[in-house]
């Protein structure tokens, strides 16, 4: 159950790419253990928003406080936040020159500075959790898309983050591999992890989300629990979007 302590506070966030405004006055609070699913048409700023949370994008205005640390120009703050925030990308972005096990241990060893043996046992634990312990010594290119994405999830978990961000984790996958990734994400959600997911997998969203967020043109248009979001959203554009993707 989500607690009432906020872990991410986004206040009046603005983001410009040159003259183009990607985010306009976005405010969102995420509490510990809460699962937030963000959806919306492409170009609506969903990815930009979660990329701001671990500062892969620099916000242009407003405030962003993650785990009590204000994200600003201090490099130390940025790295402190990134250690607490895991990120899973649409394109996996595994390190192709490292084995699966090395992909999982490079962060803990180099960034968290934990002993190698401990990092390896931790890596094996998380590989178990994403159900691919047998692939530890392979290289990413030898795995299927679904397996690669699960390794990417395990890589983030090895840093033992308090928050996980998912940026369209299943969009680059073949349909038959989507479920194995969603299963892992569901298990992670059930374990109490705080999660923000950008995804169009509405079945998954309905199952795990505490809060649904709909974005359009860089603004948050609707925030509602899934029970209300899927049945009677207030905003007509949100309704239209849902009708479109739920049609088939």
């Amino acid at each position: 159950m989500p607690e009432d302590t906020p872990i991410i506070e986004i206040r009046n966030l603005d983001k410009f790419f040159g003259a183009f405004q990607a985010l306009t006055d976005v405010s969102l609070t995420v509490h510990i253990g809460e699962k937030v699913v963000i959806c919306g048409p492409s170009g609506s700023g969903k990815s930009t928003l979660i990329r701001c949370v671990n500062r892969l994008e620099e916000h242009s205005g407003g405030h962003l406080i993650v785990d009590g640390i204000e994200l600003n120009d201090h490099t130390r703050n940025i790295r402190a936040v990134r250690m607490e925030v895991g990120m899973v990308f649409q394109q996996f972005n595994l390190f192709p020159h490292l084995t699966v096990l090395e992909n999982l241990t490079v962060g803990p060893i180099r960034v968290r500075k934990i002993p190698k043996a401990e990092a390896i046992s931790r890596a094996r634990k998380y590989l178990d959790r994403v159900h691919i312990p047998e692939q530890a010594d392979k290289y990413p290119a030898q795995l299927s898309g679904g397996q690669q994405q699960r390794v990417a999830i395990a890589r983030s978990l090895c840093m033992e983050p308090r928050i996980m961000l998912f940026d369209e984790p299943t969009s680059a996958l073949d349909p038959e591999m989507i479920n194995e990734v969603l299963d892992v994400m569901t298990e992670l959600a059930e374990s109490g992890m705080t999660m923000i997911c950008v995804t169009h997998e509405m079945g998954f969203a309905n199952k795990v989300a505490d809060k649904m967020v709909f974005m359009e043109d860089g603004k948050i248009v609707e925030i509602a629990p899934p029970s209300i979001f899927f049945t009677k959203p207030k905003n007509p554009r949100c309704q239209a979007f849902l009708d479109q993707i739920l049609e088939h």
Binding site: N54, L56, R79, R82, Q91, F95, V106, V111, R155
Partner: peptide, 24 residues
């Protein structure tokens, strides 16, 4: 994407070069 993945696990620019970018 390699930079982003390395940064997202908290690596500094130097660590990104040393462990991720230069070897590749």
């Amino acid at each position: 994407g390699q930079w982003e993945a390395a940064r997202s696990i908290g690596m500094s620019t130097l660590q990104c070069y040393r462990y991720i970018i230069l070897p590749q």
